[in-house]
Measured scan of single mutants.
Amino acid sequence: KNAAQIVDEALNQGITLFVADNRLQYETSRDNIPEELLNEWKYYRQDLIDFLQQLD
């Protein structure tokens, strides 16, 4: 998997990933985040941060 796929997957589930103060953050109206997504975000944290910062 790559960062773009993970960001896309999150968006499809109503979750927006973004970077604030060099930390990976998310916004969602969901009550909870599936644990497998959280684990994936932790595992790919630096890739996601790098990818999202390139988009800014």
Rank of each mutant, 00 (worst) to 15 (best):
F18W: 06
L11R: 14
D8E: 15
R23Q: 15
P34S: 09
E9A: 06
E35P: 11
D50A: 13
E9L: 05
Q25F: 15
V19N: 02
I49W: 04
I33A: 03
E40R: 05
L37I: 07
I33Q: 01
L55H: 12
S29K: 12
Y44G: 02
N2S: 15
Y44H: 08
D21K: 05
L17A: 01
P34R: 05
Q53G: 10
V19D: 01
Y44E: 01
Y44D: 02
D31T: 13
I15K: 01
G14H: 06
A10G: 03
E36G: 08
K1I: 04
L24T: 01
L38K: 08
E36R: 08
L11K: 14
E40Q: 08
F18T: 09
Q46D: 11
D47R: 08
I49F: 06
L52A: 01
I49T: 04
G14K: 04
N12M: 14
Q54T: 10
N12I: 12
N22R: 06
N22G: 15
L38H: 05
L17F: 05
N22L: 07
T28S: 09
T16Q: 09
E40S: 05
D50K: 12
N39D: 12
L37H: 02
Y44S: 04
Q13H: 13
L17P: 00
R45I: 14
E27T: 14
F18E: 03
S29D: 13
N12V: 13
E35C: 09
K42R: 13
A10F: 03
A4D: 06
K1N: 04
L38W: 07
Q53F: 07
F51K: 01
V7I: 11
R23I: 15
Q25W: 15
L38M: 10
T28L: 03
Q25P: 01
L48N: 00
E35R: 08
A4W: 09
N2Y: 08
L38S: 05
D8Y: 15
Q53T: 15
L48Y: 00
Y43H: 10
L52N: 00
T16K: 15
Y43I: 12
D8V: 13
D21S: 05
L37S: 03
D50Q: 10
A10V: 02
E9Y: 08
G14P: 01
K42E: 15
N12K: 15
I49R: 03
A20F: 12
I15N: 01
A3T: 04
F51S: 01
D21I: 04
L17K: 00
D56F: 07
L48A: 00
R45G: 10
L17E: 02
L24H: 01
Q46V: 09
L48R: 00
L52R: 00
D31M: 10
V19Y: 14
Q53D: 06
D47G: 07
A20N: 09
R23V: 14
E40F: 05
P34E: 05
L48V: 05
R23C: 15
A10L: 03
G14T: 02
P34K: 04
T28N: 04
I33F: 04
A4N: 06
E35H: 07
I49S: 02
E27I: 15
K42D: 15
V7C: 06
R45K: 12
P34Y: 03
Q46W: 07
Q25M: 15
D21G: 08
A20K: 15
V19I: 08
Y43Q: 13
D31F: 07
N2G: 10
L17V: 03
A10H: 02
I33V: 13
I15F: 09
P34A: 06
I49D: 01
N32V: 13
I6K: 01
I15E: 01
N22K: 07
F51D: 00
A3Y: 03
I6P: 00
L37P: 01
K42L: 14
D47I: 14
D31P: 11
Q54M: 11
T16D: 05
L52M: 04
D8A: 15
L48D: 00
K42F: 14
A10C: 04
I6C: 03
T16A: 07
E40N: 04
A4M: 09
